[in-house]
Design a protein around this nucleic acid. Sequence first.
DNA 1: GCCAACGTTGGC
DNA 2: GCCAACGTTGGC
Length: 155
Amino acid sequence: MTYWLMKSEPDCYSIDDLKRDKVEHWDGTRNYQVRNMMRDQMEVGDLAIFYHSNAKTETGCVGIMKVHSKAYPDPTQFDPQSEHPDPKSDPDNPRWLCVDMKYVEHLPRLVSLAEIKLDPAFATMPLVMRGNRLSVFPIKKIHFDRICKLATQEQ
DNA sequence: GCCAACGTTGGC
DNA sequence: GCCAACGTTGGC
């Protein structure tokens, strides 16, 4: 079982949207590393932290969700009306993949990026390491558990 | 809005 | 294969 952290801009799609939808495809990723990880490492039932990036209020971890499908071709790559159409992608050999994600729960409180940066326990988590810009990446269980634990405590 | 740090593209 | 130019991400 792999644990993940997945970023989304709340203005675009938030944890509240996922709660309303219950299950939604996590589409629009256009990065080969992310595609390969979704294809090769992501398993149905894996748990993921829902992370709000570029948030007007506060950036950080807001909820938990579960991988609900294997990776499959992202339909938005062939839709000219979508945010990220890719005219070079071959329908017979699609370039981009997505997965379905299922809402599990909101964290009791937001665990902010600032808080995570201050905590030495997260020093080796890709989120705070220099240069990491992936929107989806695996995290260690200890980091997943610690985020959940911090969310149950006063800041 | 700024900017650092990456990723991608395409000419050569 | 190199690398300049450009695009994107995402914190601040």
